[in-house]
């Protein structure tokens, strides 16, 4: 089942929620919509579910425009951010709710509900009411309910954001396992980049109602196409540099090739990940280590350069012993293309 958003526009009063979104989720893939709050990711998902109507543009499922299909006739199971189980029904009845709407017989309903509760690991909770279950259990039941009608698409609207950290990790692994087992096309809205990177096949980073970049987690992390993506996903250093206009940039006394906008010249910020920055102890170095944080295999150094810029550098812990706070150091970058951003001013 392929899902396609085609130049979707949507405004709520003066605020533009979607400003020309183009995006495709392929058959059987888990696509994460990632972005800061207000970027339009939830609006896009709600359009797919049928709860919002686009001002213009189309939502296609398997090439068919479903914009005019009412929400209850779309084949989409949804898990909501807030606990959305029906409080007056038991877990089993919640899961069977959709089957009841489809007039499936009682015996078959019960069998299917039991099967789904088994699938999400809660077979013994069939007769519990939502208020008798924990948040994580409620979301599992909600997941089972969303899958009960064998939907073509599974929609997850920040389903983990109300849970505590440990349950969140557990449940997201489970969602991933189920999604792969059922090979169901899934759209997963989240503002948590770690969640998106660890579960999704592809991550679509959104900003101000538009798509910034849609790529696999590794590609997004290693070769972000814009400065926004680079800084939203993972940690990023901004180093002052000078672009020459011929595809290279001078930074930290080195000359490095530029990825992307090669014709930029003048003062720029060079974007580098902490693990790409190397620091060595150097008596004559102009930089100074101001803080260290031990992370196991690596130690994150905070280094202040001569001009006052702060740089974070991840170096192997075994090399960090002579780089205590206060030590003089030299900071270098590997000979690899870097992403730059021209100064706004």
């Amino acid at each position: 089942m392929t899902v396609e958003f085609r130049s979707l526009h949507k405004s709520f009063g003066a605020t533009k929620a979607l400003d020309g979104l183009d995006l495709t989720a392929h058959q059987g893939e888990l696509l994460a919509l990632l972005g800061p709050s207000g970027c339009g990711k939830t609006t896009a998902l709600r359009m797919l579910a049928g709860f919002e109507h686009p001002d213009s543009g189309q939502v296609l499922v398997d090439g068919e425009d479903i914009s005019e299909v009412p929400a209850h006739r779309r084949d989409a199971g949804m898990v909501f951010q807030s606990y959305s189980l029906f409080p007056h029904l038991t877990a089993a009845d919640n899961v069977a709710f959709g089957l009841r709407m489809r007039k499936v017989g009682a015996a078959e309903r019960r069998a299917r509900a039991a099967e789904l509760l088994e699938l999400v690991g809660l077979p013994q909770h069939a007769d519990r009411y939502p208020h008798q279950m924990s948040g994580g259990q409620q979301q599992r039941v909600a997941l089972a309910r969303a899958l009960a009608l064998r939907p073509k698409v599974l929609l997850l609207d920040e389903p983990l954001s109300a849970l505590d950290a440990k349950v969140r990790v557990q449940l997201r692994e489970e969602i991933r396992r189920l999604q792969q087992e059922l090979a169901i096309t899934t759209v997963f809205v989240t503002h948590d980049q770690e969640e998106a990177l660890s579960t999704a096949d592809r991550v679509a980073v959104m900003r101000d109602g538009r798509l910034e970049q849609c790529a696999s987690p590794a590609e997004l992390y290693d070769t972000p196409s814009t400065a926004f993506v680079a800084e939203f996903v993972g940690t990023m250093n901004r180093l002052p540099g000078r672009a020459t206009g011929d595809g290279t940039v001078e930074v930290l006394g080195q000359r490095l090739p530029v990825r992307g906008a090669a014709d930029t010249s003048g003062a720029v910020d060079v974007l580098v990940r902490p693990e790409a920055v190397d620091a060595t102890a150097d008596e004559d170095g102009s930089a100074r280590v101001t803080a260290t944080a031990f992370h196991g295999a690596v130690t994150r150094l905070t280094v202040t350069l001569a001009d006052g810029t702060t740089v974070k550098a991840d170096i192997p812990s075994h090399r960090a012993s002579d780089l205590a706070a206060g030590a003089a150091a030299t900071v270098t970058l590997p000979e690899r293309p870097v992403l730059i951003e021209a100064h706004a001013a």
Partner: peptide, 20 residues
Amino acid sequence: TLMEAARSCGASPVRAVFQA
């Protein structure tokens, strides 16, 4: 949310009101 949950389970708006 109850309405939307019911509708995504295939309930028409009227049924969603009465059943959820």
